[in-house]
C-alpha cells in the first residue's frame, strides 16, 4: 500500500506539470527505482527537460543539465584539474556530472569521444580524471535525451551503447485534451507553477528498493521471460536478440513495476508493461524486416505464448 501510495503521489505531482503523460511518468519512475538510466527520445519541445527536472524535484535529487554540443569535450562533463600558480598545485574542478541526476540534453549532438566518456561514467558510477578515480554521488541517474530525426552533424548512439540505458521512452505529442488544458493554463498565467514538491525522500527510496528486492518471480514467469528472450534470438525478424543484460533489465523492471503496484509477485502483465520501454531500443530488426524496434516488441508480445507448453 505504502509503495503504491508514494508512487501515485509522485506521478500526480509530476503530472501536474507534464500534462497527460502519466504512463511515461510511471515508467520513468520505474526506471529510476530500478537504478537505471533513462533515454528520452523525442522531438524538441515535447517536455523532455520538464520531465527530468520534475523527476529530480519529486525525488529531491540534486540536478544539473548539460547541453551537448559538437565542441563539448569529455573534460567539460567530467571536470578538469586547473593549475593554481599561487600554491603551485593542481586543483580538481568537478564537472557537471557530479550530481545525483544529470540531464544530458541532445546527447547525439556531441562526438563519440564525449559520448563514451559519459557512458563509461554511467556504467561504472565513478569518474577517472588524469589517473585519479573519483566516485559519483549516490544515487546517480542520467536522463539523456536524443533527437530521433537524423540531422546533419549528429552522431547517433551506436546500438551497443544503447544497451547502457535501462529504458528508452518517447513522450509523444500530448493528448488534445491535455494540450487544451495547457493552453488554458498559459492563458490564465497559472503555468508558472514552481518546482513540484518533493514526494519521496531518500529513506523512502531505499524502502522502495527493499520492496522491489522482495518481489517474487515464479518459475512460470521466468519461463515466460525465457520464451520472450529466446524468441528474439531465434526469429528471423531479429538481427540482434536480447542480450543477457537486456533480459536481466526486463526482469528488474518487471519486479519494480510489480512493487510499484503493491504486488509481492510478478505477473505477465508487468513484463508486458515494461517490455516496450526496456526492450525496443535493444532490438535490431533484420535487414528484410520493415518495422523498427517498437514493431518488434509488438510482435514479441503477440507471438510469444504466456502459457507454457
Amino acid at each position: 500500500m505504502q509503495v503504491q501510495g508514494l508512487v501515485d503521489g509522485a506521478v500526480k505531482e509530476v503530472g501536474n506539470i507534464l500534462l497527460g503523460k502519466e504512463p511515461q511518468i510511471r515508467l520513468a519512475l520505474c526506471c529510476l527505482f530500478a537504478r537505471g538510466h533513462l533515454l528520452l527520445e523525442d522531438l524538441p519541445g515535447m517536455g523532455k527537460t520538464t520531465l527530468s527536472h520534475a523527476l529530480a524535484s519529486v525525488l529531491g535529487l540534486s540536478w544539473k543539465r548539460v547541453q551537448f554540443t559538437s565542441d563539448l569535450l569529455p573534460a567539460d562533463i567530467l571536470g578538469v584539474s586547473v593549475f593554481d600558480s599561487n600554491d603551485a598545485s593542481f586543483t580538481f574542478h568537478p564537472g557537471p556530472i557530479f550530481t545525483q541526476l544529470l540531464l544530458a540534453d541532445e546527447i547525439n549532438r556531441t562526438t563519440p569521444r564525449t559520448q563514451s566518456a559519459l557512458l563509461e561514467a554511467m556504467a561504472e558510477g565513478q569518474v577517472t580524471v588524469e589517473g585519479e578515480t573519483r566516485p559519483l554521488p549516490q544515487p546517480f541517474f542520467v536522463i539523456a535525451t536524443q533527437n530521433p530525426v537524423h540531422q546533419s552533424g549528429t552522431y547517433p548512439l551506436p546500438e551497443s551503447q544503447l544497451d547502457r540505458f535501462l529504458m528508452r521512452l518517447e513522450l509523444g505529442y500530448p493528448h488534445p485534451q491535455a494540450e487544451r488544458q495547457m493552453f488554458e493554463r498559459r492563458h490564465s498565467g497559472a503555468m508558472e507553477i514552481s518546482n513540484p514538491r518533493q514526494c519521496i525522500d531518500m529513506e523512502q527510496l531505499e524502502m522502495i528498493r527493499i520492496a522491489v528486492s522482495k518481489v517474487h518471480a515464479s518459475e512460470n514467469l521466468l519461463d515466460y521471460l525465457q520464451r520472450l528472450v529466446a524468441h528474439t534470438r531465434q526469429s528471423p525478424e531479429f538481427e540482434v536478440g536480447l542480450s543477457p543484460r537486456g533480459a536481466l533489465a526486463l526482469l528488474d523492471c518487471a519486479k519494480t513495476w510489480a512493487a510499484m503496484h503493491n504486488r509481492g509477485h510478478v505477473v505477465p502483465e508487468d513484463l508486458q508493461a515494461v517490455l516496450p520501454a526496456v526492450a525496443a531500443h535493444r532490438l535490431v530488426p533484420s535487414g528484410d524486416y520493415a518495422g523498427d524496434g517498437d514493431a518488434l516488441v509488438d510482435l514479441l508480445r503477440r507471438e510469444v505464448d504466456v502459457i507454457g507448453r
Partner: peptide
C-alpha cells in the same frame, strides 16, 4: 485466447 494474451487479459 491469442498467444500473447495473459490469463488476466
Amino acid at each position: 485466447r491469442v498467444p500473447g494474451e495473459t490469463p488476466g487479459q
